[in-house]
């Protein structure tokens, strides 16, 4: 991959210094991409667990709104959700939008959206745990909370690791949707650079960044899966 960038650098139309500044600007954008990625996971994964809990409630007035929420979040485009979260305060309350709101808006929209996906992944994982695990825990006197956190959740984590990995890899690529409200993550930067330079190079370089990042993510998740493969 490093070789690929070097070859690009040797193209006669592109001087080394332009490439270097391109990479530097992309790297700054990449920092933002990683920030969106990290904060989204940080908020959406626990939020998804809470949502999953409400969704699995036996009381319809809890489960039903959660179901509706999940179906709307999954059934409408994330880009539209980002736009609504960002422009909503203006259209609804005539609040003026500050530049500082761009990043929080992206994080809110991503977290709300991904929580819905994570909730469904957790639910499938929880429902796949045999009822006998709950019964054994019950007879041994574990409380409901102990049963969930000590016995059920660790097994759910193992079972949901593959779909969660998929979701995380999708998230890396979805971060590019933040360009819709001009939050300057890597994709937005690449787009600006490409049109300024009239060149494909920024796109290719951005692609390399995304690819390497996901390669690392996949590698780490695989290690986690291996680590949890000590049982069954």
């Amino acid at each position: 991959m490093a070789l690929g960038i070097l070859q690009i650098a040797n193209q006669p139309t592109m001087s080394g210094s332009i490439l270097l500044s391109t990479l530097r600007q992309l790297a700054t954008g990449f920092g933002m991409t990683v920030a969106i990625f990290v904060f989204t996971l940080l908020f959406s994964m626990p939020l998804g667990l809470g949502l999953c809990n409400v969704r699995m409630s036996r009381r319809w007035f809890f489960s039903w709104p959660a179901r509706l929420y999940i179906s709307v979040m999954r059934g409408t485009p994330l880009m539209l959700q980002i736009l609504m979260i960002f422009f909503g305060p203006y259209y609804l309350f005539k609040m003026s939008l500050s530049d500082a709101y761009r990043f929080p808006a992206v994080i809110i929209a991503f977290s709300l959206n991904y929580a819905a996906y994570f909730a469904e992944i957790y639910r499938a994982g929880i429902e796949s745990i045999p009822i006998g695990q709950y019964e054994a825990a019950n007879v041994l006197g574990y409380s409901k909370l102990q049963t969930f956190f000590k016995i059920i959740l660790p097994q759910v984590v193992k079972r949901t690791l593959p779909p969660v990995t998929n979701e995380i890899i999708t998230l890396t690529k979805d971060t590019s949707l933040a360009f819709a409200i001009a939050c300057t993550e890597m994709f937005t930067t690449a787009k600006q650079l490409a049109s300024a330079q009239r060149s494909m190079v920024p796109y290719i370089a951005a692609a390399v960044f995304y690819y390497i990042f996901n390669f690392v993510v996949a590698f780490v998740m695989e290690r986690c899966e291996k680590k949890l493969s000590y049982y069954r």
């Binding site: 045999p130 006998g132 695990q133 019964e135 054994a136 016995i151 660790p154 097994q155 193992k158 049982y231 069954r232």
Partner: peptide, 10 residues
């Protein structure tokens, strides 16, 4: 004691 043990696999 259960028919299918119900040990905690982890």
């Amino acid at each position: 004691v259960f028919q299918n043990f119900n040990l905690f696999p982890h």
